[in-house]
Simulated scan of single mutants.
Amino acid sequence: MRKLLSWFLKLVSGLLLSGIAWILFVALQQIYYSEPDQVYLMGTTISYAFVYVFLCIVIFFVFSFLKLRFNPDKLKRRFFVFAAFYLVCSPLVILAFDNYLLVTPKGMVYNKFLSVGDGKVKRWREISQVELDYQVTAFPFQRENRVRLRYFVHFKDGPTVDLNHYNSPLYDADQFKAIHRVLLKQGVPVKLKRPLPEKYAKENPFVYEMFHFKQ
C-alpha cells in the first residue's frame, strides 16, 4: 500500500510540475510576441496537448535519473534513450508553436505547421478576398447536424489559407469575429460561396452571424 501511495504521489508531482512548466512555456511565448496593436494567436489544440505530453515525459526522465544516480550503467542507458527521444521530439515542439496567426495594423501572416521561422506579413492590399463557406457534418444518434465554418483567405499572389481548419490557431468565436472585423475595416472583399440556410441559424448562431456580419 505504501509503495502504491508513493508511486501515486510521484505521478501527481510529475503531472503538476509538467503543468507548471507548460504554463510558463505558453506565457513566455505570449510575452515574447506581445506588441501593441497586434493579435498573436499561437499553436493549436494538438500543439498544446503535444507540448504537455512532451514535458511530462521529460519530467519522467528527470525523476528516473535521480532514482538511478547510484547505478551508472542503467543511468547511462536511460540517458541514451532520453537523448534519442529529445532529438526527435524537441524539433516538433518548435514546429508546433511556430504555427501561428499574426494580425498587425499593416497586414497579417499565417505560418503553417511545417514553416520554420518568421513568415512574411501580407499587407491588406495583397488579399484579394475572403470566401465564406460551410460544411455540414452528421453525427450518429444526434438529431441536429453540426455546421462548421470554412474561412478562406485568398491572396493575390496565389496562396489560399483556411483559417478555420481542424488544427487552426483560432479557438473561439470572439477571436474569429475580431479578425473578421479587422478585415472588413481594411476593406477586404467578403464573398459567400453559397448562402447559409435559415434552418441552421438557431443551432449554429456563430456561423450564421459570420455569414451576415456585413449586415
Score class of each variant (00 low, 15 high):
Lys106Ala: 08
Phe85Val: 10
Cys89Asn: 15
Lys106Glu: 12
Thr104Tyr: 05
Tyr86Gln: 12
Pro105Ala: 02
Pro105Tyr: 04
Val81Asn: 09
Asp98Ser: 14
Ser90Tyr: 00
Ala83Leu: 15
Pro91Val: 04
Asn99Met: 11
Tyr100Glu: 07
Ala84His: 02
Lys106Cys: 02
Tyr86Leu: 15
Val103Met: 13
Tyr100Val: 08
Phe85Thr: 09
Asn99Cys: 11
Gly107Asp: 06
Leu95Tyr: 05
Leu101Arg: 09
Ser90His: 02
Cys89His: 02
Lys106Arg: 13
Phe80Thr: 08
Arg77Trp: 13
Gly107Arg: 08
Val88Asn: 02
Leu102Ile: 04
Pro91Ile: 07
Thr104His: 12
Phe85Trp: 01
Pro91Ala: 12
Lys76Pro: 01
Asp98Glu: 15
Tyr86Val: 14
Leu102His: 08
Arg78Val: 09
Phe85Leu: 10
Ser90Asn: 04
Leu92Cys: 07
Thr104Leu: 11
Arg77Gln: 13
Ser90Asp: 10
Val81Tyr: 01
Val93Gly: 06
Phe79Tyr: 10
Thr104Arg: 12
Cys89Ser: 13
Ile94Lys: 03
Ile94Met: 15
Phe79Glu: 07
Leu102Arg: 10
Asn99Pro: 09
Lys106Pro: 03
Phe82Asp: 06
Asp98Gly: 14
Val103Arg: 06
Lys106His: 15
Gly107Ile: 10
Lys76Glu: 14
Lys76Tyr: 15
Val81Glu: 03
Leu101Trp: 05
Pro91Glu: 12
Asn99Ser: 09
Arg78Thr: 12
Tyr100Met: 04
Leu87Ile: 09
Cys89Met: 15
